[in-house]
Design a protein around this nucleic acid. Structure first.
Lengths: 180, 180
DNA sequence: TTAAACTTTCAGTAATTATTGAAAGTTTAA
DNA sequence: TTAAACTTTCAATAATTACTGAAAGTTTAA
């Protein structure tokens, strides 16, 4: 498979961004490749396009699936598995967001909950616990908020996103309404 | 410097989370250590507490400063530099959020803007460009939105965060008001 | 059953990233 | 000036992470 320069450029960029997005270069390239190809690809086509080993593709696919970013298709009479992105661009971004929340926030929240229950044995520990409490509260707010976003309908989300600079006004509005 | 088990536990956890938060283990530990200590620390105290070399601390501090997470204090008559977190827990989270946006989103947005201007030479490129356009639009929305959040006052943010499950209702309300 | 057509696994190795510690740099006080 | 008290730099190396490719595993058709 020969990628056009424009497409290759995009795929390589996804690779470079990969580790920043939470995976590694190869996984990043794979996401890019799948997203930019209308037709599902076989593992061999992926290996060929990205010039990586078949085994690496296999591991990459496993990882992609753990992020719920890829899904498998079968073509009748064809034994190969065909891979494509698991949903729209928006869906994928959502999946990454969710998965990262699980990996970046949840473990800390668990730790902090335990630590806060203990009682402090010194002035330092007292201060430490206050700080941990602040972090805990912050992370809990973020978690709740992100769950909330997940629950909104796509239309509501669109509206919310498009609110842009008027979001402040809406908050003020809400404030006033609630006070009455 | 001897850390109490509870505090050490927290610092080690920050280290383990470090790479998920966008830096590495040592930087993670340094953030944890600074946040949990009421008094600013010297580079030597940090090296001692984390059992790492003085040179590593120096590089870590540089990195922390590039994220704007630490600030320096001076004590009259004392030549050493003292480090402490650059703001409240909330401020720090904001800084990390902003910095990550810059590293994870901005470069892609730049690339996509260029790519979309080119015209497609084939059906594949046409599809590819449509996808790139979708990603571009998504990232632009996220960027605008995050700029918006930065601009809100802490009070407004608090209100927004506390909206929780009623955020959907507020959006619908806003929708109705606008339509009249 | 066998074998063809595929996928997965994993030990060995390559590539990348992080750390040390010694040397060089900087600042201040005497 | 000198030297003491600090910080930074960076080449060498350690630690971690990613990749290959051969072998093992799985599925299906005949």
């Amino acid at each position: 498979m020969n990628l056009s320069p424009k497409i290759e450029n995009f795929v390589l960029h996804c690779g470079e961004m990969g580790s920043r997005w939470g995976f590694n270069r190869t996984i990043g390239q794979m996401v890019g490749l799948l997203v930019i190809n209308e037709k599902p690809l076989t593992a061999n086509e992926i290996a060929d396009a990205l010039k990586i080993s078949r085994g690496n593709v296999s591991m990459g696919i496993k990882e992609l699936q753990s992020w719920q970013l890829a899904k498998v298709h079968h073509i009748p009479g064809d034994r190969k598995e065909y891979y494509s992105p698991n949903g729209s661009i928006w869906d994928l971004a959502n999946k990454v967001f969710e998965e990262r929340r699980k990996r970046e926030i949840d473990p800390t929240l668990t730790l902090l909950r335990d630590q806060i229950l203990d009682n402090a044995n010194s002035a330092e520990e007292k201060y430490a616990q206050e700080q941990m409490q602040s972090i805990h509260d912050l992370l809990e707010t973020v978690t709740k908020w992100s769950a909330e976003l997940q629950r909104l309908s796509p239309e509501q989300l669109q509206t919310l996103m498009k609110l842009g600079s008027s979001v402040g006004k809406v908050i003020d509005l809400k404030d006033k309404l609630l006070r009455k």
